[in-house]
Simulated assay, not measured.
Amino acid sequence: MEQKHETLGSVVKVQQVIDFMVLGVLQQQGKQYNNQMEQFILRKLDGTGVNNAYLTTRLQFLFDKGHVDRWWDGDKRFNRFYSITGSGVTYFLQLKLELPERVELAQKVYRQFDSYIHEFDGH
């Protein structure tokens, strides 16, 4: 009987990828608007983006955990700036250590799945 070492849902968690990218751009480029971070993700992932509502949810999570600060730009209630905190830097460094192994595992799983898909070639 095969032993389960991982579940597909835990191979790479999308929220960790988003958190890493958000915290990374805030470190590299300083304060950012939500839409600037969304555009950054699109550029870095060659057109693959994140649902705006989901990005907002992740930003709320990062704020609630103390990893980012946020504030309004004047009276424009739709323009909210974000910046990274010391806690955010610590969380980013933790993700930087964990994610490469997770990405490698995800690539392995997808290669195995790709091989399985090809078992049906010609059927």
Rank of each mutant, 00 (worst) to 15 (best):
Q16I: 00
Q16A: 12
Q16D: 15
Q16P: 01
V17W: 01
I18P: 04
I18W: 02
I18R: 05
I18F: 02
I18G: 03
I18L: 10
D19P: 05
D19Y: 01
D19H: 08
F20Y: 13
F20E: 01
F20S: 00
M21Q: 13
M21R: 07
M21A: 15
V22I: 15
V22Y: 03
V22R: 00
L23M: 10
L23Q: 03
L23P: 01
G24Q: 09
G24F: 03
V25A: 06
V25F: 02
V25P: 05
L26W: 00
L26H: 03
L26K: 01
L26R: 03
L26N: 03
Q27I: 14
Q27T: 12
Q27W: 00
Q28S: 11
Q28D: 11
Q28G: 08
Q28N: 10
Q29S: 15
G30Y: 05
G30P: 03
G30N: 04
G30I: 08
K31P: 09
K31C: 07
K31H: 15
K31Y: 11
K31R: 15
Q32A: 15
Q32S: 13
Q32N: 13
Q32W: 11
Q32T: 04
Y33M: 13
Y33Q: 15
Y33T: 08
Y33P: 03
Y33A: 03
Y33E: 12
N34K: 12
N34M: 14
N34G: 09
N34A: 12
N35T: 13
N35Q: 14
N35A: 14
Q36F: 07
Q36K: 10
Q36W: 04
Q36I: 01
Q36A: 14
Q36L: 10
M37D: 07
M37G: 00
M37K: 03
M37A: 07
M37H: 04
E38P: 00
E38I: 13
E38H: 13
Q39V: 02
Q39P: 00
Q39G: 06
Q39N: 14
Q39L: 10
F40Y: 15
F40K: 11
F40V: 09
F40L: 11
I41E: 02
I41N: 02
I41R: 04
I41C: 03
I41H: 07
I41Q: 05
I41W: 04
I41Y: 05
I41T: 02
I41M: 14
L42Q: 07
L42V: 08
L42A: 08
R43M: 09
R43T: 09
R43D: 13
R43F: 05
K44W: 07
K44V: 10
K44Y: 05
K44T: 08
L45E: 07
L45R: 06
L45Q: 08
L45I: 00
